[in-house]
Design a protein around this nucleic acid. Structure first.
Lengths: 195, 195, 195, 195
DNA sequence: TATGAATGAGGATTCATTCAT
DNA sequence: GATGAATGAATCCTCATTCAT
């Protein structure tokens, strides 16, 4: 995938068509523009992200177990698609349409977190001092940017278990759920292939 | 500042010179290239960031008080320079030299955090289960990306006090320092101008 | 041909494309740069020069007859391509790659001359006092610069027969071959078109 | 001298002023343009060339001795000023004023040669078959381009004595003066310093 | 539907020259 | 006379997109 290799800006349409084995003319019968094919590619990635990061209803929550599950799912999904997500990051810095996409992803995860916290507050398991919205913003930042830093910026990823443990611990304790047991299953409970 | 308004990519040299009230020739008496002037501008911003985000030695630490101080400083420094930091984010997605700059900033803050955690572990005030390095990565992500999200991505900043309180709480509790008193001074202890 | 009219330095790419009836974009489908198209053009000229200045094996030599033949061939070939050869002269004064080309042409003719002299010395037809190398350098200079002077510098060419007779006489007598009969066929024995 | 080092095209006025230790403003109180200073420099060189290449009236001629003297003088004068003469060669390929200068030098030497030949023909020492004008053109080419080739193009100069002997022999024999004794004084009769 | 040759707008940069001080 | 900061015209090249075949 040319976008992954060169980034959006440095990806030449000619590279894309050559790599796809079609002529530039043919390209335009399928996509109206360079932006359009990137939209298609990145939309697919985002859908996979959402699918992979979804937490099944049978995972008990909203507590430590569900938080851990969600964190691990997100980390795996990000790792899986880090290449193109990095490009979305690039494009969203200069293209409003993709910035909007970027925001949508973030909203989705932030809202899930926000709802979780709200539920925990309603259940009286965490205090109501923290604003669910602001807290969700912070926790979303922590997890998503942890992925960006390790996969894109530094390019030396952490061990998945260590990352999950660290992030979950910070998250759970941070919102005040620390007293509840966290590590019933200490490490990498594999949930099928990570693909 | 043209970069702030248009981003690096869309900033035309002619816009820069017109906005500076000089001819293109004059521009090149002072800067050898578009990249060079951005380097100068962003280097200055980074220096101001570091200065503004520095925590004076007399702030007691490494504990909740120092963490809160550092968080508030960072938030203020970011808010102050959000416009250009957003552009650095853009440029670092396609220019290796600026990506390195971006990394350097991150390293600096991450290392400070890492050292703080290590000290707290040595003092026996937080458990040693969490890796200082990985934890610092996560907390750095939380704070820095919180700023990016609120100032650049969403453009609807949170109230400084709420943000500081939320981030500090998550941080302090997250590393297991929750038992120690946090809110001696509940809100915005102004430390003079943030300049 | 724009190069011929304006020289390399004053040839604007836009002139070239306009004169070729194509857009600037089209130009770059065929040549990667201004230098590249000049390379193509001048390489072609050089090849034609070599072809036209070649002396067929059946021309008896290495004596007056072959010397005359070679001289006439060179003069015709130069006249044919004087316009572009003048530009090569210009470019070779500031561009190392083309200076090398210029040297190569010279080497080729000088070596041919050097070998001819050496053979004549071996046959005992000319004395061995003169260094073949230095003599070849001088004779190459005489013929090539005679062409440059008359076609480029002065722009008033000599009559071909007069030029051939003069140069051949100076050459043949100069190396000490004067006693042998020179002018069996006194003038312009046409050898077909000079193309 | 900046022109000698960089050529006319690559010589920046700023280099010239820096090397002269004056400001660009001051430069323009002495020379109206870059072309003007080169004119001054090259005019001086040409004058020195003429002075150095002049043949004193007491050198016996127009025969072998005078031809040898003139050749040696020319070679020395050229060697002395090869650097700037090469630049004149460059400039004359695109600037009509300097091309005219270049022509003037050539004319001067060609005319001297032409007159010498005419005199020898009048004296019956050489045949009248060769056109003095065309012959002078050829011999001027031989000597001048020999210098250009060895000093500028190839940058591996021949030994002065060998060059003088070769060129003089070719010249003398070439015009048909071969029967007369040439080498009364076999080598480098030093005529004072070559400076 | 596939092709790929042709398009052309758009922008960073150089350096001889000027002129207010 | 000396300075040197300011000038600005002039040009090569890229690459997403088109459209006749």
């Amino acid at each position: 995938m040319v976008f992954e290799r060169d980034g959006y800006l440095d990806a030449k349409l000619s590279d894309i068509t050559v790599s796809a084995g079609v002529s530039s003319g043919t390209f335009y019968t399928y996509f109206p523009s360079k932006e359009a094919i990137f939209t298609a590619v990145i939309t697919d990635v985002i859908n996979r992200m959402f699918a992979a990061a979804a937490v099944p209803p049978d995972v008990p929550g909203p507590g430590p177990q569900r938080i851990e599950y969600a964190t691990r799912s997100y980390l795996r999904a990000y790792a899986e698609h880090a290449g193109l997500l990095a490009i979305l990051e690039q494009v969203s810095t200069f293209n409003p349409a993709f910035r909007e996409m970027r925001r949508t992803i973030r909203h989705s995860f932030r809202t899930r977190t926000e709802n979780g916290i709200r539920k925990l507050q309603e259940q009286g398991r965490v205090d109501t001092e923290l604003s669910p919205r602001c807290t969700a913003e912070a926790l979303t930042s922590m997890v998503s940017n942890f992925c960006y830093a390790s996969h894109v910026l530094e390019r030396e990823a952490y061990d998945e278990d260590e990352a999950v443990r660290t992030l979950t611990t910070l998250w759970v304790r941070g919102i005040g759920l620390g007293a509840e047991a966290v590590w019933t299953t200490s490490t990498s409970t594999d949930r099928g292939t990570s693909q």
